[in-house]
Computed example of a mutant assay.
Amino acid sequence: MTKEAYELIEKEKMNFLEKLFGNTPNIHRTSELKSFFSKIKIEKETVIGTSMRKRILPFIILVFLLFMALMFIVLIIENKIVPVLLLLSTLLSFFLYKTFESLFGKMYNYKIQLSSQSLCIDKHQWNWDQISETLIQEVNGNKNVSYNLVILTKSDEVFRFSLLLFSIPVSDLCQLIESYKKGGVS
Protein backbone atom coordinates (compact mmCIF):
# COMPACT_ATOMS: atom_id res chain seq x y z
CA MET A 1 0.00 0.00 0.00
CA THR A 2 1.19 3.52 -0.74
CA LYS A 3 0.68 6.88 0.92
CA GLU A 4 -1.71 7.94 -1.84
CA ALA A 5 -3.89 4.85 -1.38
CA TYR A 6 -3.95 5.39 2.39
CA GLU A 7 -4.95 9.06 1.89
CA LEU A 8 -7.87 7.94 -0.30
CA ILE A 9 -9.03 5.53 2.41
CA GLU A 10 -8.86 8.29 5.03
CA LYS A 11 -10.72 10.75 2.77
CA GLU A 12 -13.51 8.20 2.31
CA LYS A 13 -13.93 8.08 6.11
CA MET A 14 -14.54 11.85 6.30
CA ASN A 15 -18.01 13.03 7.28
CA PHE A 16 -19.99 15.78 5.54
CA LEU A 17 -18.75 18.65 7.72
CA GLU A 18 -15.12 17.65 7.33
CA LYS A 19 -15.54 17.59 3.57
CA LEU A 20 -17.44 20.90 3.59
CA PHE A 21 -14.74 22.75 5.56
CA GLY A 22 -11.85 21.01 3.79
CA ASN A 23 -10.51 19.33 6.90
CA THR A 24 -8.54 16.74 4.95
CA PRO A 25 -6.23 14.28 6.67
CA ASN A 26 -2.71 15.63 7.07
CA ILE A 27 -0.43 12.71 6.28
CA HIS A 28 3.35 12.88 5.74
CA ARG A 29 6.03 10.36 4.96
CA THR A 30 8.60 10.05 7.74
CA SER A 31 11.27 11.00 5.20
CA GLU A 32 9.51 14.38 4.74
CA LEU A 33 9.44 15.20 8.46
CA LYS A 34 12.85 14.02 9.60
CA SER A 35 15.01 16.55 11.38
CA PHE A 36 18.02 17.57 9.32
CA PHE A 37 19.67 19.43 12.21
CA SER A 38 19.13 16.75 14.83
CA LYS A 39 22.15 15.45 16.70
CA ILE A 40 20.57 12.09 17.50
CA LYS A 41 23.15 9.37 17.81
CA ILE A 42 22.04 6.20 16.10
CA GLU A 43 22.84 3.20 18.28
CA LYS A 44 22.60 -0.50 17.44
CA GLU A 45 19.05 -0.45 18.82
CA THR A 46 16.77 2.28 20.19
CA VAL A 47 13.82 1.76 22.52
CA ILE A 48 11.36 4.61 22.98
CA GLY A 49 9.00 4.35 25.95
CA THR A 50 6.13 6.51 27.11
CA SER A 51 6.82 9.77 28.90
CA MET A 52 7.49 9.56 32.67
CA ARG A 53 5.29 12.62 33.21
CA LYS A 54 2.30 10.66 31.95
CA ARG A 55 3.06 7.84 34.40
CA ILE A 56 3.83 9.91 37.51
CA LEU A 57 0.73 12.13 37.50
CA PRO A 58 -1.71 9.22 38.01
CA PHE A 59 0.34 8.03 40.98
CA ILE A 60 0.14 11.48 42.57
CA ILE A 61 -3.62 11.47 42.02
CA LEU A 62 -3.81 7.97 43.51
CA VAL A 63 -2.05 9.14 46.70
CA PHE A 64 -4.50 12.05 46.92
CA LEU A 65 -7.42 9.65 46.45
CA LEU A 66 -6.15 7.38 49.21
CA PHE A 67 -6.06 10.40 51.52
CA MET A 68 -9.63 11.29 50.45
CA ALA A 69 -10.74 7.70 51.11
CA LEU A 70 -9.23 7.88 54.59
CA MET A 71 -11.10 11.13 55.26
CA PHE A 72 -14.26 9.52 53.90
CA ILE A 73 -13.93 6.61 56.35
CA VAL A 74 -13.39 9.04 59.24
CA LEU A 75 -16.58 10.94 58.28
CA ILE A 76 -18.55 7.68 58.16
CA ILE A 77 -17.29 6.62 61.59
CA GLU A 78 -18.19 10.01 63.10
CA ASN A 79 -21.69 9.98 61.49
CA LYS A 80 -21.29 13.31 59.70
CA ILE A 81 -23.74 14.84 57.26
CA VAL A 82 -25.09 12.38 54.63
CA PRO A 83 -25.13 14.79 51.60
CA VAL A 84 -21.44 15.52 52.13
CA LEU A 85 -20.75 11.78 52.20
CA LEU A 86 -22.76 11.27 49.03
CA LEU A 87 -20.88 14.02 47.21
CA LEU A 88 -17.51 12.75 48.41
CA SER A 89 -18.29 9.16 47.42
CA THR A 90 -19.36 10.29 43.95
CA LEU A 91 -16.23 12.37 43.44
CA LEU A 92 -14.03 9.65 44.87
CA SER A 93 -15.45 6.98 42.58
CA PHE A 94 -15.06 9.22 39.52
CA PHE A 95 -11.44 10.06 40.33
CA LEU A 96 -10.64 6.42 41.09
CA TYR A 97 -12.09 5.34 37.77
CA LYS A 98 -10.09 7.94 35.81
CA THR A 99 -6.90 7.19 37.72
CA PHE A 100 -7.05 3.44 37.19
CA GLU A 101 -7.98 3.99 33.55
CA SER A 102 -4.87 6.11 33.00
CA LEU A 103 -2.62 3.83 35.06
CA PHE A 104 -3.63 0.47 33.68
CA GLY A 105 -5.22 1.32 30.34
CA LYS A 106 -3.65 -0.77 27.58
CA MET A 107 -4.36 1.68 24.79
CA TYR A 108 -1.03 3.55 24.92
CA ASN A 109 1.02 1.12 26.99
CA TYR A 110 3.65 0.10 24.45
CA LYS A 111 7.23 0.79 23.40
CA ILE A 112 8.72 1.54 20.02
CA GLN A 113 11.85 -0.51 19.34
CA LEU A 114 14.01 0.31 16.33
CA SER A 115 16.97 -1.60 14.96
CA SER A 116 18.69 -1.91 11.61
CA GLN A 117 16.80 -5.17 10.96
CA SER A 118 13.30 -4.44 12.24
CA LEU A 119 10.71 -2.16 13.77
CA CYS A 120 8.83 -3.48 16.80
CA ILE A 121 5.81 -1.76 18.31
CA ASP A 122 3.74 -3.38 21.05
CA LYS A 123 3.39 -7.03 19.97
CA HIS A 124 3.94 -6.33 16.29
CA GLN A 125 7.29 -6.75 14.61
CA TRP A 126 8.20 -6.05 11.01
CA ASN A 127 11.43 -6.40 9.12
CA TRP A 128 12.18 -3.27 7.13
CA ASP A 129 11.66 -5.16 3.86
CA GLN A 130 8.06 -5.96 4.93
CA ILE A 131 7.19 -2.26 5.31
CA SER A 132 6.23 -0.33 2.22
CA GLU A 133 5.94 3.08 3.94
CA THR A 134 6.00 4.73 7.35
CA LEU A 135 3.76 7.75 7.74
CA ILE A 136 2.91 10.35 10.35
CA GLN A 137 -0.75 11.35 10.47
CA GLU A 138 -1.90 14.47 12.30
CA VAL A 139 -5.03 13.89 14.36
CA ASN A 140 -6.93 17.06 15.11
CA GLY A 141 -8.54 17.09 18.53
CA ASN A 142 -10.45 19.85 20.29
CA LYS A 143 -7.54 22.22 20.82
CA ASN A 144 -4.59 19.91 20.43
CA VAL A 145 -2.98 18.11 17.57
CA SER A 146 -1.67 14.64 18.24
CA TYR A 147 0.12 12.30 15.90
CA ASN A 148 -0.22 8.70 14.81
CA LEU A 149 2.57 6.58 13.44
CA VAL A 150 1.11 4.65 10.50
CA ILE A 151 2.83 1.52 9.22
CA LEU A 152 1.87 0.38 5.71
CA THR A 153 3.04 -3.13 4.92
CA LYS A 154 3.65 -4.68 1.52
CA SER A 155 0.80 -7.11 2.26
CA ASP A 156 -1.60 -4.09 2.31
CA GLU A 157 -2.07 -4.07 6.08
CA VAL A 158 -2.37 -0.77 7.93
CA PHE A 159 -1.26 -0.33 11.55
CA ARG A 160 -1.84 2.91 13.49
CA PHE A 161 -0.12 3.77 16.77
CA SER A 162 -0.80 6.91 18.76
CA LEU A 163 2.24 8.98 19.71
CA LEU A 164 0.27 10.95 22.30
CA LEU A 165 2.13 9.69 25.36
CA PHE A 166 5.62 9.69 23.90
CA SER A 167 7.93 12.56 24.79
CA ILE A 168 10.10 12.35 21.67
CA PRO A 169 9.50 15.06 19.05
CA VAL A 170 7.94 13.76 15.84
CA SER A 171 10.87 15.04 13.75
CA ASP A 172 13.35 13.10 15.91
CA LEU A 173 11.25 9.94 15.67
CA CYS A 174 11.14 10.34 11.89
CA GLN A 175 14.91 10.84 11.86
CA LEU A 176 15.39 7.60 13.82
CA ILE A 177 13.00 5.65 11.58
CA GLU A 178 14.67 6.84 8.40
CA SER A 179 18.17 6.14 9.76
CA TYR A 180 17.25 2.60 10.79
CA LYS A 181 15.46 1.98 7.49
CA LYS A 182 18.75 2.63 5.75
CA GLY A 183 20.33 0.10 8.12
CA GLY A 184 23.03 2.37 9.44
CA VAL A 185 24.62 2.67 12.84
CA SER A 186 26.51 5.93 13.05
Rank of each mutant, 00 (worst) to 15 (best):
L152A: 00
L8Q: 07
S102C: 00
S31I: 09
M1F: 06
V150N: 02
N23C: 06
L87C: 13
F36M: 12
W128D: 03
E45Q: 11
Y97F: 15
V185E: 04
L92P: 04
I136A: 04
Q175L: 10
N26R: 15
F67H: 12
P169N: 09
N140F: 09
L91C: 11
T30K: 07
T24G: 04
T90S: 14
I121G: 01
F104K: 08
Y110E: 00
D156V: 14
E10F: 09
P25D: 11
F21C: 02
R53Y: 05
R160V: 12
E157Q: 12
I48E: 01
N127P: 00
Q137P: 02
L163H: 11
T2Y: 04
L62Y: 10
K80M: 12
I40N: 06
E32L: 15
L165E: 12
V158K: 14
L173D: 05
S116V: 14
V139I: 15
S102A: 04
E101N: 09
S38H: 14
L91A: 12
G184E: 11
R29A: 08
T24Y: 14
E133Y: 14
I121E: 00
I56Q: 02
P58E: 04
S146E: 05
G22Y: 10
I9Y: 07
T46S: 09
P25R: 01
E7S: 08
T46C: 07
N127W: 01
N109V: 08
I177M: 09
L173M: 12
T90D: 03
V63R: 05
K19E: 10
G141C: 04
F94R: 13
L87W: 12
S93P: 03
N148G: 01
E12I: 15
E78V: 15
W126K: 08
Q125W: 06
S115K: 08
K154C: 02
S93M: 15
Q137S: 05
K34Y: 13
I42L: 10
V158F: 06
E43C: 05
I168W: 13
T153S: 13
L92K: 11
R53S: 08
E18P: 00
G105T: 07
I48T: 01
F159G: 00
V170K: 04
V145G: 01
G22T: 03
P83K: 13
L173I: 13
L70Y: 15
F67C: 09
F104G: 00
R160I: 12
I40F: 01
F16C: 02
F95W: 11
T99S: 12
K111T: 08
N142A: 05
K19F: 12
Y110R: 01
R55Y: 03
F159P: 00
D129R: 10
S132Q: 14
V47F: 01
Q125I: 06
E10C: 15
L176M: 13
G49K: 11
Q117S: 02
K123Q: 05
E10Y: 13
S155K: 15
S162G: 07
R55N: 03
L57S: 09
F95A: 11
T99D: 05
P25Q: 14
V74C: 06
F64V: 13
E45I: 05
I48W: 00
K41G: 04
D129N: 12
I73C: 12
N127E: 03
